[in-house]
């Protein structure tokens, strides 16, 4: 199964990014393909490399980046949502890229299932 995932919240205030990450990881472990994770709304904050969670806590920014590196998952943050929130190329964490909202519609067309995680 080819999957598209939309993440609508940042890594701290809501559980959405945690759930999305665990879902994506489980899907990949089962042999499914996560074609793209698209970060929208405050979800773009998942791509902020300046974020420093406490050392005994999970670091979703890093975890997403590792998933991208190990499994070739395309992590896309929405350009319009990013500009509003100050997420720009110079603070973009490894594994993420900034692109247009069309990339979300595109993965919706290409994937067998598209699932949203948000609040």
């Amino acid at each position: 199964m080819k999957l598209g995932i939309m993440v609508n919240e940042g890594p701290f205030t809501h559980q959405a990014s945690d759930t999305a990450y665990q879902f994506a990881k489980a899907a990949i472990e089962k042999g499914h393909q996560v074609m793209r994770v698209f970060f929208y709304y405050d979800g773009v904050n998942n791509a902020n490399k300046l974020s420093e969670p406490q050392s005994d806590d999970r670091n979703l920014v890093k975890l997403w980046g590792e998933l991208a590196k190990e499994h070739g998952v395309d992590l896309v943050v929405c350009v319009a949502a990013s500009l509003r929130r100050g997420i720009k190329d110079d603070i973009l964490a490894d594994g993420f890229r900034i692109s247009g909202l069309g990339q979300l519609i595109e993965v919706g067309l290409a994937a067998d299932r598209t699932i949203t995680f948000g609040d």
Partner: peptide
């Protein structure tokens, strides 16, 4: 579990998230 969540997505088709 999360693996079962993935199975449900595969089995039941279009996913609607009631956010």
């Amino acid at each position: 579990d999360y693996s079962g969540f993935v199975d449900l997505v595969e089995e039941f088709g279009t996913v609607q998230s009631w956010l």
